[in-house]
Structures are given as C-alpha cells and as structure tokens.
Measured scan of single mutants.
Amino acid sequence: IRLYEREDYRGQMIEFTEDCSCLQDRFRFNEIHSLNVLEGSWVLYELSNYRGRQYLLMPGDYRRYQDWGATNARVGSLRRV
C-alpha cells in the first residue's frame, strides 16, 4: 500500500508491506489524503494501535480520503488482512 500526504497522489509518499501500529512513528504525517492498494486488502484505523474507525480497502486507487468512506484524513495505524 502506498500512502500520500496530499490528494491525487501528491506530496510525500510512503509504502508499507507490513502492519504498522503507529503511522506517525514511520511517517511524519497522521493525515493521508490519497493512497494506492497495490495488492491484497488492508484495514486503515483512525487511531494508533488499531483503534477507532476502520476502513477496509481492496486493491485500487483512492484519490481522496472520501473515496474510502472516511469523513477526515486522519490515519493512525494500518493492518494487512
């Protein structure tokens, strides 16, 4: 999964292949505005340590956080399923 700091895949990008319990420890931002799921399925959590609202993401492109059903861009952790 590739996470981007801004909409439309702009700004700083980070790629994950494994679970991350605290996004801010690995990426200086806690807001993700766009992403690409390259393979497999992922769950994004609004808070760190896999807490808060959850969003199940299938392979595909998500140009804005609204595309995955979120009401804001906050992402605290993520897990591959």
Rank of each mutant, 00 (worst) to 15 (best):
P59Y: 02
F29D: 10
Q66V: 07
L38E: 06
N36L: 06
L38Y: 04
Q66Y: 02
G60I: 04
D25L: 12
S21H: 05
N72S: 12
T17F: 13
F27I: 07
F27R: 04
M13I: 08
S41H: 09
D67N: 15
Y4A: 01
I1W: 00
Q12Y: 10
L47W: 12
S34A: 14
H33A: 11
D61Q: 07
F27P: 14
G76L: 07
Q12R: 07
E46N: 02
E18H: 11
D61H: 02
G40R: 04
E7I: 05
W42P: 00
V75L: 06
F29S: 14
D25F: 07
S48A: 05
E39L: 06
Q24D: 07
L38H: 11
E18L: 09
L47M: 03
N36P: 00
L44M: 09
M58Q: 13
D25T: 03
R64L: 14
E7V: 07
L35A: 11
M58L: 10
R28D: 14
A73E: 09
L23A: 13
E18K: 05
N30D: 10
C22A: 10
A70L: 12
L78E: 00
L47C: 14
Y65G: 15
G69R: 15
N30V: 15
Y4E: 00
R53G: 10
T17K: 06
L23V: 07
S77V: 00
R10A: 05
N72K: 06
V81I: 07
R26G: 08
R2D: 02
Q24R: 10
G76W: 01
R28H: 02
R6M: 07
S41Q: 11
G60C: 09
Y65E: 15
V43E: 15
R28E: 03
C22T: 12
R2M: 11
D61F: 05
E5K: 14
D25S: 04
F29V: 06
T17C: 10
Q54L: 04
T71C: 10
E46Y: 01
D25N: 03
G11E: 06
G69F: 09
Q66A: 10
S48F: 04
Q66C: 06
V43L: 05
L47K: 02
T71Y: 03
Y4C: 15
G69H: 11
Q12W: 03
E18V: 09
Y55Q: 09
E31M: 11
G60L: 03
M58P: 15
R79P: 00
L23M: 15
E31S: 04
Y9K: 10
Q54T: 11
E15S: 05
E31A: 10
L35Q: 09
A73W: 14
R74S: 09
S48G: 07
S77D: 00
L23I: 05
T71H: 12
S77Q: 00
W42V: 14
L56V: 08
T71R: 13
I32W: 13
Y65S: 12
S41T: 05
D25V: 07
Y55D: 02
R79W: 02
